[in-house]
Nucleic acid binder design. Sequence first.
DNA 1: GCAAATATAATAGCGATACTATCATATTCA
DNA 2: TGAATATGATAGTATCGCTATTATATTTGC
Lengths: 226, 226
Amino acid sequence: MSLLSFKLNEKLYLRDPQHTQLGQNIIKKSIEMIDKMGFEQFTFKKLAEQIESTEASIYRYFENKHHLLLYLISWYWNWMEYRIELSTSGIKDAAEKLRICLRILAEEKKIDPTFEFVNEAALSRIVISELDKAYLTKDVDDLNKDGLYGGFKSFCKKVAAIAQEVCPSYPFTSSLISSVALIANHQVFFSNHLPSLSSLPKDNPYEKLYEFMESIVFLSLTPSTK
Amino acid sequence: MSLLSFKLNEKLYLRDPQHTQLGQNIIKKSIEMIDKMGFEQFTFKKLAEQIESTEASIYRYFENKHHLLLYLISWYWNWMEYRIELSTSGIKDAAEKLRICLRILAEEKKIDPTFEFVNEAALSRIVISELDKAYLTKDVDDLNKDGLYGGFKSFCKKVAAIAQEVCPSYPFTSSLISSVALIANHQVFFSNHLPSLSSLPKDNPYEKLYEFMESIVFLSLTPSTK
DNA sequence: GCAAATATAATAGCGATACTATCATATTCA
DNA sequence: TGAATATGATAGTATCGCTATTATATTTGC
């Protein structure tokens, strides 16, 4: 069992996967598989084969594969929020806090040994390519009512609060932060696959990505020579 | 037949749907249906019923439903680019041109009578909720090699060229423009369905959306007090 | 105007997907 | 040890994505 685990919205799962061997296998292997083959190609049947279990058993943990994806994404944003809390806890200055948030958003994700059975590097690639699919669905409103987007919303809220502190008069804080959080993902994807849509270097976009995000955010929050 | 039609990449379709009655029905009805039920629920079988044709006949126009979606999205960005050309052709000042582009990106889309059998209002809702699904796929690289993302790329390139003119020294023009183009869509969706992620009013987000986008872009392109 | 080419319709079928249901066998733990 | 619970094994259903075949319209070239 891990030392630390996140308390995720209970509607995300039927049985809590963090607490059993089978559940942990499901999480671990599904991250691997979705990363490799993409969410469309991924099925519970294939997953069952890989972990030497059965489709029916997996369905006892997750209502369907879309809920599993929401679970993983929610886990990811909880993890991101946790990291922001760790890194900003000692800091006083709001602008410095905000810079740390942007750093964390922009940087390449590495495996965090605090959490066994989660490969954060692979998970972050999943979030890059599947986040929008999870959100932009016809049943947003139902899913949202059940709080299934809580992870991302909570993350954005926390960062937005810091941004608000930096510039209380800026009128678009929520939009700015949610936009920048998505941009971080899109631009990594573009730099890699559709380079004409990006100004970031393909081999290592992360440093420039930070500069790009930092400039957007701080120019917006710094009422210059008005 | 329409007076005007766009020359879309030939790999998007098997038979050009703009040139036949059945083809036009496919376009017209698929826009309606995808708008109503979402891309996931939409199938060629259901479409065939609606237009009183057969699944097999539709497969003679489009390889599969993903290609049909790419076709619609490509059409949309061609239309957007065409509108930008119309609206900026007489203008000299680059900054003013760029503002017009942002206006067009941010505004609510209305039906354009120039193009029969395309409901641009519905199509723009499709682009809002399905654009990322079309791009963020495991076979991006193949699709991109065939030029299937040409519409969006060409649109961004055109706007980026104007932005570059406004500020030749800005290092992230491509990233800025592609980001803003996506933001326009996301923020409309968020203001409607996930309002805590947005600062825009739910009932009519468009005016504020423009202000938001304008401020991001022009603050970035205007090296203030450096 | 007629034959040849082509487009569409009608129907069937295949393998895979997303799930549900049932029953048997482990495992846990009171 | 016995009762509850978790998992495995297996089967089944409706739909999806797509292909194939054959028949019937419709267009086009001569």
